[in-house]
Simulated assay, not measured.
Amino acid sequence: MIKKAANIYWLGVKELRSFSHDFVLLGLVVYAFSLAIILQAGSNSQELHNASIAIVDEDHSELSRRIAHAFFPPLYQYPQLIAERDIIPLMNKGRYTFVIDIPPDFERYVLAGQQPGLQINVDATAMVQAGLGSGYAQQIVTTEIADFLSHAEGVKLSTVNLDVRIVFNPNLTTAWFTSVMAIINNITMLAIILAGAAVVREREHGTMDHLLVMPLTPFEIAMSKVWANGLVIAVAVALSLYLVLRLMLGIPVAGSIPLFMVGVVIYLFFATAIGIFLGTVARSMPQLGLLFMLVFLPMNMLSGGNTPLESMPLWLAKTMQISPSTHFVAFAQAILYRGAGLDVVWPQFLAVAAIGALFFGLAILRFRSVVAQAD
Results as ranks from 00 to 15, higher is better:
A197R: 08
A197G: 09
A198T: 04
A198Y: 00
A198Q: 01
A198V: 01
V199C: 02
V200H: 01
V200R: 01
R201E: 09
E202A: 00
E202Y: 00
E202S: 00
H205K: 14
H205V: 12
G206V: 01
G206L: 01
T207E: 01
T207A: 03
T207C: 03
D209N: 10
D209I: 07
D209M: 09
H210T: 09
L211K: 00
L211E: 00
L211V: 01
L212P: 00
L212K: 00
L212T: 00
V213W: 01
V213F: 02
V213I: 13
V213R: 03
M214Y: 10
M214T: 13
P215N: 06
P215Q: 05
L216D: 01
L216W: 02
T217C: 02
T217L: 04
P218D: 06
P218Q: 08
P218H: 08
P218T: 06
F219V: 08
F219N: 03
E220I: 01
E220H: 03
E220T: 03
E220K: 02
I221G: 00
M223G: 05
M223R: 04
S224K: 04
S224N: 08
K225C: 07
K225A: 05
A228C: 10
N229T: 14
N229I: 05
G230A: 07
G230V: 06
L231Q: 06
L231H: 07
V232Y: 02
V232D: 02
V232N: 03
I233N: 05
I233P: 08
A236R: 07
V237K: 04
V237G: 05
A238T: 15
A238G: 11
L239A: 15
Y242C: 11
Y242K: 15
Y242L: 15
Y242E: 15
Y242S: 11
Y242G: 13
L243S: 12
L243M: 12
V244C: 05
V244R: 04
L245C: 10
L245M: 14
L245F: 10
R246H: 15
M248K: 11
G250S: 10
G250M: 10
P252E: 07
V253I: 15
V253H: 08
V253D: 06
V253Q: 10
A254T: 14
A254R: 12
G255I: 13
S256G: 11
S256A: 10
I257Y: 08
I257K: 08
P258H: 11
P258W: 11
P258F: 14
P258I: 12
